[in-house]
Design a protein around this nucleic acid. Structure first.
Lengths: 333, 333
DNA sequence: TTGAAAGCGCTAACAT
DNA sequence: ATGTTAGCGCTTTCAA
């Protein structure tokens, strides 16, 4: 069954294909009567313009590529609402491209190659340990890109990020003020938020008081609860601390549960702070104090920024830094 | 900066564009020496074939559309690993199309219209209260489609689902055997698993013993913990039950937490069963007994089925029903 | 083994 | 206000 084309519609309506094209593209030079004939023909033949052909003719695909490593999916998921809503409103499709963790040789260039071939109008990248290389590639091919979670700015390149350093110094100072300096930072491999900056913020807060936050106070961990929980279950058999910062709520829940299983009362014996303010944080008992990052908005802003670039609109701020704040719940005093 | 095309490569290599096309498509009639010249030119010019042009010429986009309502995103998320991995392996791109909950008039046809215009090679749909209409549309446009969570089969139409009726009768019988018939089913609006069938399974199990499971034992609820938790927090002030089945782990956590806040011990005073075996179920205290649904595999199978349809391969089973089982944890005895 | 040319379905000058 | 025509960048016969 052959798909109906603009030619079929033109014939049915008794006009040229150019007129049909004008009607479907909303040109206002078409005589109302003619327009109606065309509209009728479109309806009768149930014609749906081929976006691929249009894309070839206009060099526009109205599609945006979202590229991220699988491990960041949890974050992207929370953001996809904002991305999807904005994209839908602005009439863009979103295609997702994930990079596998354990890639065959060169996962980054592999997936970006697909993006380039797909001729996506624009691209959204996420902070990851590969992000610099990714940015490099997108710049080389001159594809308008916005990066989420990593501050950069350039031609055809915007970013939306969070001031991780600021929030971690604030948090650290809060405890240092209370004389609590037995702090541990549980750091997952990847996060939307720059965990290296977060770590640096802690160190700087310590340093400002003549103290040092040593690297052995940073515990690297998996974001799989199945892995992190047993780890901490074991860890707390032999360790006690005053405060645990976490790079992601999921690990914070593992810490809370494992601590309590070892008779450590949260928050009385130990305080725990999560990150991202995901639903994990409210489902945990006690509910987690956590750093709120407005992920939905991050996604929505990314698409808006991107479409501005695509439209050649003026962009006042190309490297947007959004604020975060701490949500106080029951895992801290 | 003009993108380099197949013509540029042809000129650089001193051959015709047909030869270049043969090289990039792996035709084996090209003389090795010629092939090498072309390969060199491709490398030198950093040529990436335009997938849009190719799509127009071949009527294939190598892209698959995934369509689902926002509220199902939690489920799709768990599945996207499987979808993404399979799609990547089989060299398809996936485009996601979400329908907004509170649509302007006709969300379904709106979003599917985009899918049709995009000329996606195939489409993945999910069980939802709109799925019948969606299927209808895909059939009309003859787009190979696989539906996840809803059993159907037709030309160009496969499905992968779960036998909800079977699992709910099994579960119900387990409690009925123990003489526990004070059962409540907490039912969210949408789930990948057909909750109507699940409900029917409970009813049938009751009926088989001359009992009735009345409709007032089905509590409809939101999947937002922020909504469901306060609801149950209040509910358990005046209600006690022996067993609570839940249509999704998230609500089960709300039930567990709210019950415990009201002094109801889980599982001693009340048993709670979740559904889907998400990470919520292991993070809950006590950890949830839940119905395991192999979502990753569901996603992977969907893509494999779809690509078989696209390749015209033989499909032995067009309406696959996958098994589920109950994972026993500490929210039941 | 390679090249020439038609065509995929549409848009966008340019004519009329 | 409408029609004609030349692309968009590729694939795929058909010839050579």
């Amino acid at each position: 069954m052959k798909k109906t084309t603009i030619y079929d519609v033109a014939e049915e309506a008794g006009v040229s294909l150019a007129t049909v094209s004008r009607v479907i593209n909303g040109s206002n030079v078409v005589k109302p009567a003619t327009r109606q004939k065309v509209l009728d023909a479109i309806k009768k033949l149930d014609f749906k313009p081929n976006q691929i052909a249009r894309g070839l003719a206009t060099s526009k695909t109205t599609s945006i590529a979202i590229v991220f490593p699988e491990s960041l999916f949890g974050h992207v998921k929370d953001m996809i609402g904002g991305i999807g809503d904005s994209a839908r409103t602005l009439d863009y499709n979103v295609s997702i491209y994930t990079t596998e963790e354990i890639g065959d040789g060169n996962p980054v260039t592999g997936v970006l190659e697909k993006v380039i071939k797909s001729r996506a109008d624009g691209c959204v990248l996420f902070n990851s340990d590969q992000v610099d290389r990714e940015i490099e590639i997108m710049k080389r091919y001159n594809i308008p890109t916005v990066v989420i979670g990593y501050k950069v700015e350039d031609d055809n390149l915007c970013s939306i990020s969070v001031d991780a350093h600021q929030i971690s110094t604030e948090l650290t100072n809060h405890y240092l003020d209370k004389g609590m300096d037995d702090i541990i930072f549980v750091k997952p491999k990847q996060n939307l938020v720059r965990l290296d900056e977060f770590t640096q913020g802690i160190k700087d807060a310590f340093a400002a008081r003549g103290l040092t936050f040593t690297d052995d106070r940073v515990i690297s961990t998996s974001t799989h609860y199945e892995v992190s929980y047993p780890f901490f279950q074991d860890y707390f058999k032999t360790h006690r601390h005053q405060v645990i910062f976490n790079g992601y709520d999921k690990e914070a829940v593992a810490v809370v549960n494992a601590a309590q299983d070892n008779g450590i009362k949260v928050p009385d014996d130990m305080e725990v702070v999560g990150m991202m303010n995901t639903s994990y944080s409210i489902m945990s008992r006690p509910a987690l104090t956590t750093i709120h990052v407005p992920v939905y908005e991050l996604g929505a802003m990314a698409i808006r920024l991107l479409t501005k670039m695509l439209n050649g609109d003026e962009i006042e701020e190309k490297a947007v830094v959004v604020g975060t704040h701490i949500i106080k719940r029951n895992s801290t005093k």
